[in-house]
Design a protein around this nucleic acid. Sequence first.
DNA 1: GTACTTACTAACGTATACGTTATTTCCCGA
DNA 2: TCGGGAAATAACGTATACGTTAGTAAGTAC
Lengths: 233, 233
Amino acid sequence: MSASTPRRLRQTGRSRTSLVERAYEQIKQRILNNDYSPGYQALEKDVAEDLGMSRTPVREALIQLKHEGLVELIPRRGMKVVPVVAEDMQEIYDVLTSLESMAAELLARRQPDSDVLEPMKAATRDMVDALEDNDLDAWAAADERFHRALIDLCGNRRLASMANTVRDQGYRARMVTLRLRDKPFASADEHERVLKAIEEGDWQTARDVHYEHRKRASRELTGILRKYRLPQL
Amino acid sequence: MSASTPRRLRQTGRSRTSLVERAYEQIKQRILNNDYSPGYQALEKDVAEDLGMSRTPVREALIQLKHEGLVELIPRRGMKVVPVVAEDMQEIYDVLTSLESMAAELLARRQPDSDVLEPMKAATRDMVDALEDNDLDAWAAADERFHRALIDLCGNRRLASMANTVRDQGYRARMVTLRLRDKPFASADEHERVLKAIEEGDWQTARDVHYEHRKRASRELTGILRKYRLPQL
DNA sequence: GTACTTACTAACGTATACGTTATTTCCCGA
DNA sequence: TCGGGAAATAACGTATACGTTAGTAAGTAC
């Protein structure tokens, strides 16, 4: 009523993104940034207030996030940020191994021009540089870029969408374990071997090397989760 | 008002499944059964009337179906059953090849007891019998059961969910092409080889044989789509 | 006759109201 | 004091109302 309560603050007119999209992005960001930690529960109403909108767009965004495995919807208890345990991480990495090695195969089969692969090459170079600078965050970002580029370039949109979804599920765990693991020296080298095979059109090798790359990452990650007894991420 | 218009017909009390779930199942069934053919468009309101409920649960069901790639949601035009063209089928089968061959590998690695594999064995036997009886529908159903069982038994729930989703996307095309292709003699034999490798714990062979199995099916299917110039399925 | 503008219509996006149901708390009895 | 039941509360599921926007058609001007 008073001047301090600006009711009807609705986005009049020029909103390019719907409230559902905004709710989706913001909730997802909060989960990935650990603002909503694993296990965090909140009622639809509270999330809606948090985001300054009504329950409806929040509900629709939550349905999507449920599909992506980031939240669980429990009647009368609201949404819950699903914790990822070691077993989940195993599942996630097995799917990533499967989909990404197929992506490497598909990309290699397409015999892409050298410049098409530039994003992957640049990401790999950045990984080497970041490791020399001892900048783990930069390394992780570059590693993320490599895998994202591989997926984006493979030409299979369904595969890309699924791989991105499942990669997001492991994002928090990768961030947490980043400083608990040994220096990731092997990755850039493996990336270069994948790139070489792709450039040569040797799709079997591209697939097999990437398969081993992800398997190794999986072993490392689940090993750390067990070693440090990390209950959930 | 009159006795012929039973207002408040709402599911009072004992509804075990929510309207959203019912909407989801029914719309999906109609799509897979071709009651809603590829390209079919309908407004939210019309679908809601069709199912005898309001727009809200229909909307929420449609959001899920959009995520599964079965419908597209176009503002002011309602939902559209997404047609699957040859290129989509290639994408679908590449993903299936990837995920299912990983499933075969995972299952083989687990060294399952022989009786665990019984659903897959029974399905394979049924395929042989159906082919002898010249019963293509029974063959397709048994083939479907084999692949579903493989996915269910592999132990990776994320992989299973994704594989099921993408398999549904190809369902209509498989049904349509069932009678356009040569008799599927090879499949049961390939299934038996996968089973043998799984039982022996030879996960590389299980993976590779299943990979080739799906690749072959993919070639056949996309070949038929091109040969018969099937525009969309 | 064609093109542009304007007005009307219809569908969706969002908010909100309402009824149902699950959960929790309190009270009573054993 | 503990357990069970009932009532109250709170959250969700669903329906519906409302406002915005896009699409369409008609009319006018050039």
